[in-house]
């Protein structure tokens, strides 16, 4: 018990050392840039300057401060990323089940899945925008497409990982197809499904930000490029960098949390640890 506690606390220690190391590295760079560049904040500002900009009350554009701009636009982008993620998640899961149910569906759908995955998102986004003519819908569609593939392939791999003996057992007990899925296949694939979600959650957010850059009417990506072009304070850019990094990590962490709640295997592991 004591050994376990030591490991737990040391893991926190490791994280702390990591964060401290990153801060020191960043600040070394910032001091160096400050000494050699005329506009150091465009390359690498000090962390305290970024933090100060968060609490600054200076109005930058449209009567909003930097933080207000970031938060309003984050709402527009992240909400759409979230919708797209949910749609991609449901679609990926359902297609995986359909592919498992029918070999024909798998044969037909799999090449398309691969194709979607191979087309770069930056190439796909303008096409989607041209079709939908709406940046909000485009964000949702792109986030959904990106979520779809990892969720679908991982879930399918999970469905296929069931041991033959378990299926034999189901057969011997004369289980119907619904029972086979509900009692055996779906519980087995849940951890795989969550692996897909953990991969795709940050991707959906990145994709939505990328889609924003295509048009000038709002969203994190739009503000990001405007700030980089010096249309507004550069600190909007730095705030967005930190915010999106944080949200990306948090989204993956949230999936882990949900997995511990909903995956039968993980619930078991948690109970054993207690």
């Amino acid at each position: 018990m004591k050994a376990l506690q030591t490991i737990r606390s040391s893991r926190k220690l490791v994280t702390l050392v990591w964060i401290l190391g990153l801060i020191i590295l960043w600040e070394c760079g910032a001091f160096y840039i400050e000494a050699v560049k005329r506009t150091p904040e465009n390359v690498l500002p000090h962390l305290w300057q970024i933090i100060a900009s968060v609490f600054s009350t200076k109005v930058i554009s449209n009567g909003q401060t930097a933080t207000q701009i970031v938060l309003t636009n984050a709402g527009a982008t992240l909400l759409r990323a979230g919708y797209g993620f949910l749609i991609g998640m449901a679609g990926g899961f359902l297609l995986a089940i359909l592919m498992k149910l029918s070999g024909i569906v798998e044969k037909v759908a799999f090449p398309y899945l691969m194709l979607i995955q191979m087309i770069p998102i930056l190439g796909m986004a303008p096409i989607v925008l041209a079709i939908t003519k709406d940046i909000g819908v485009s964000r949702i569609v792109i986030a959904a497409i990106l979520t779809f593939y990892p969720v679908c392939t991982n879930t399918l791999a999970g469905l296929k990982s069931v041991e033959q003996e378990k299926l034999d057992l189901m057969y011997l007990c004369a289980a119907n197809r619904y029972q086979v899925y509900w009692k055996t296949l779906i519980p087995t694939c849940i951890p795989f499904f969550f692996t897909g979600l953990k991969i795709s959650a940050p991707m959906a957010i990145t994709a939505s930000i990328l889609v924003d850059t295509l048009q000038g009417d709002g969203g994190l990506g739009c503000m990001l490029s405007q700030s980089l072009k010096h249309a507004m304070s550069i600190y909007v850019f730095w705030q967005i960098v930190f915010l999106s990094a944080f949200v990306g990590v948090a989204s993956s962490w949230l999936m882990g949390l949900l997995e511990r709640r909903f995956s039968p295997q993980k619930r078991l592991a948690a109970r054993k640890g207690a």
Binding site: E163, L169, M170, A175, K183, P187, Q265, L268
Partner: peptide
């Protein structure tokens, strides 16, 4: 009833729930 080479137990079910599985299907 059949007993396999490996126990073929469901990891997320307790011993009792494993034994109950065929009965649930019935």
């Amino acid at each position: 009833g059949m007993v396999f080479q490996s126990p073929v137990l469901y990891e997320w079910r307790t011993v009792q729930k494993n034994i109950e599985l065929p009965l649930e299907l019935m």
